[in-house]
Design a protein around this nucleic acid. Sequence first.
DNA 1: TTATCAATTGCAACATTGTTGCGTTTAATT
DNA 2: AATTAAACGCAACAATGTTGCAATTGATAA
Lengths: 130, 130
Amino acid sequence: MKATRNTAAKTAVLEVFEKSKTALSHTEIHKQLNDLCDRVTIYRILDRLINEDVIHKISNLDGTVKYAKCNHAHQRVHIHNHAHFSCENCHEITCLENVKPSYIMPHNYKVNEINFTLSGLCPNCLNSNI
Amino acid sequence: MKATRNTAAKTAVLEVFEKSKTALSHTEIHKQLNDLCDRVTIYRILDRLINEDVIHKISNLDGTVKYAKCNHAHQRVHIHNHAHFSCENCHEITCLENVKPSYIMPHNYKVNEINFTLSGLCPNCLNSNI
DNA sequence: TTATCAATTGCAACATTGTTGCGTTTAATT
DNA sequence: AATTAAACGCAACAATGTTGCAATTGATAA
């Protein structure tokens, strides 16, 4: 495994994640960093953070991709088997750490990873719609 | 609701879906149609078919988007709550019509749609890996 | 059958998202 | 302080998806 370094850009990206309660797209991160570093650099930092298991990638029903900090609190071996909620109104994506699907697979499949995304209205938008 | 028409391009796209056992990307459809129609037209046909509930959209963990025919056999009200399997080796996506997750949501969320994708090795690739 | 008209298409142009190569800079180590 | 590989910026490119508009065409009614 290659050694990874702590650079100004990487630290800044981590701070953005720290501040955010919801998952972020590459574009959202880029805007928040305000040209502190190049667009390409952010892609590379995101790749590295995924490899380091610091963040995880979420792909939404509409094809958009977002990233969120991992919550390692209770797991040694880290599997992202929690659900995500994607609001159709405000387009925010949040992790539902406690929602875990149960399911029965046919044998002869080997499951390595699961992606469980629910979409609809989040509590905020549900309230303001009444 | 607008009236929709049966055009040569739409019919051709439907035939491609009919022949395929797995979900298809826009690019895959485009190649199979062999310049029968424009790239943009395919995007528009896919949009229409989704609105008509003839196909559904599947977005994969890696951010790729595919489409598959809906199987309406048993449902009046059509909800795509079945799972999809995405093979990490051959990148084929198949519908697992019978795999339905059960889960418990926090109240104050309104769930309209779910996207449940499992990835790993499909039966084909699992066998050839032994 | 023909006229009508909105749905559909093709084309061109553009926007967004993600990738790659390469020379330069920089963090961590000796 | 010297070393060196990781990380960076820049430029160029590829893939994917969108929009506007004029031309075409499928479905309907006359």
